[in-house]
Simulated scan of single mutants.
Amino acid sequence: MFLVSRPECFDHNILSEKDRRVSNLDPDYKYCDAIREGIFSNSPNWQGGGWYRFHHPAGSMLAMSAPGDRVCGTDAPGWTNSTLPDNMGESKAIEICFQWDGTICFWKNTGAATNCGTFFVYYLENTPDCRSRYCGST
């Protein structure tokens, strides 16, 4: 049996808010994934830049396609346009886009994704604007 020895597979934060899912179309939720003062409130599970795993009910992974404007409990939802690592224990750099005002990649962040076997973890930075948040999907 092969065990993943990457530290981020064992030491990471959890993003589990149900309003973070791409299926959340409620415009009344206004959160951001940034530790700063802004228009919206900081997301309850956001701890600043670091390794994160998406977990039910938020979904099981970072959204892999543009989810649309004003979903996931924010105005500018974050998703990745990168492929994820195929092999267990593999990590790779990813680009993360934030959709805003009809532009699917208005703001960008870089991050990383690690394949932990049965799940992925992501290195996520504070979002570039406090109207943006990382979106979960399944």
Rank of each mutant, 00 (worst) to 15 (best):
W46I: 08
W46K: 04
W46V: 05
Q47N: 15
Q47K: 15
Q47M: 15
G49C: 03
W51V: 14
Y52K: 10
R53S: 04
H55G: 01
H56N: 15
P57V: 03
P57T: 06
A58W: 02
S60G: 14
S60N: 13
S60Q: 07
S60H: 07
M61D: 10
M61R: 15
L62G: 02
M64N: 07
S65T: 15
S65Y: 06
A66L: 01
P67L: 07
G68I: 02
G68F: 05
V71M: 00
V71S: 00
G73I: 01
T74A: 08
A76Y: 10
A76M: 04
T80R: 05
N81V: 01
N81G: 12
S82F: 01
S82E: 02
S82Q: 08
T83A: 13
L84F: 14
L84V: 07
P85F: 09
D86N: 12
D86M: 09
N87F: 15
M88L: 05
M88P: 11
S91I: 15
S91W: 00
K92M: 15
K92R: 15
K92G: 10
I94L: 04
F98L: 12
F98A: 09
Q99N: 04
W100P: 06
W100I: 06
D101T: 07
G102Y: 02
I104C: 02
I104P: 14
F106M: 12
N109F: 01
N109M: 14
G111Q: 05
G111A: 04
A112T: 13
A113R: 09
A113L: 08
N115G: 05
N115S: 04
N115V: 06
N115E: 09
C116P: 09
G117W: 12
T118N: 14
F120A: 03
V121D: 05
V121I: 13
V121G: 05
Y123E: 08
Y123F: 14
L124E: 07
T127K: 09
T127H: 02
T127P: 01
